[in-house]
Write a protein that binds this DNA or RNA. Structure first.
Length: 175
DNA sequence: CCCTGATTCGC
DNA sequence: GCGAATCAGG
């Protein structure tokens, strides 16, 4: 898989929106999260708008200014992502992305924000091994379910199982 | 153990 | 330039 223009743009977009490298990798398909991270660095857009610069390892100089909230209850699921990215003395380009991300989120509430390749199954098509992750607004025409294989232990595919519960971070013993 | 991003370095 | 391996951390 090579980095086409479109793929790079999608990468930039998703990264600026605060998605993790693995999530982005999943959506792009054909690449690992390492590939995504590597690309992000090569594009010099790590830090997502904040985290000024001097990235010396061994000591954390990084603080992401994004807050994620996710509520997943039963059939209707609502994702609320609030990305408060303050680009203090950051690049104007990065600032643009930040704004774009917010606008994007506001305009598109619950639609296909974070969905890999779904099979777009209707409720009746679900079976025991299909992912039952709801996509879109249940009151809307295009509402459907992910439908990817869910194994037979989880109601979701491996990808959505991870997204369903803890939002990628700030996770603590909940079971 | 699950995950996160960061860095290194052979290709 | 690319990304697996590795590192450092939550």
């Amino acid at each position: 898989m090579n980095w086409t223009d479109e793929r790079v743009e999608l990468l930039k977009k998703l990264w600026s929106e605060g998605l993790s490298a693995s999530q982005i990798a999943a959506q792009l398909g054909g690449v690992s999260r390492n590939a995504v991270i590597g690309k992000v660095h090569r594009l010099k857009l790590s830090g997502r708008g904040k985290t000024s610069s001097t990235q010396t390892r061994s000591k954390k100089v990084n603080t992401t200014g994004s807050v994620r909230g996710s509520v997943h209850s039963g059939a209707s699921q609502t994702m609320v992502r609030t990305s408060v990215t303050k680009s203090v003395g950051a690049t104007a380009l990065q600032a643009e992305y930040a704004v774009e991300a917010v606008a994007h989120t506001v305009l598109k509430p619950a639609a296909d924000v974070v969905v890999p390749i779904s099979r777009r199954l209707s409720l009746l098509q679900l079976s025991e091994r299909t992912c039952k992750w709801p996509v879109g607004d249940p009151l809307n025409e295009d509402f459907h379910f992910c439908g990817n294989d869910s194994g037979d232990t989880s109601p979701y595919c491996t990808y959505h199982s991870k997204l369903a519960f803890q939002p990628a971070s700030e996770r603590r013993r909940a079971r």
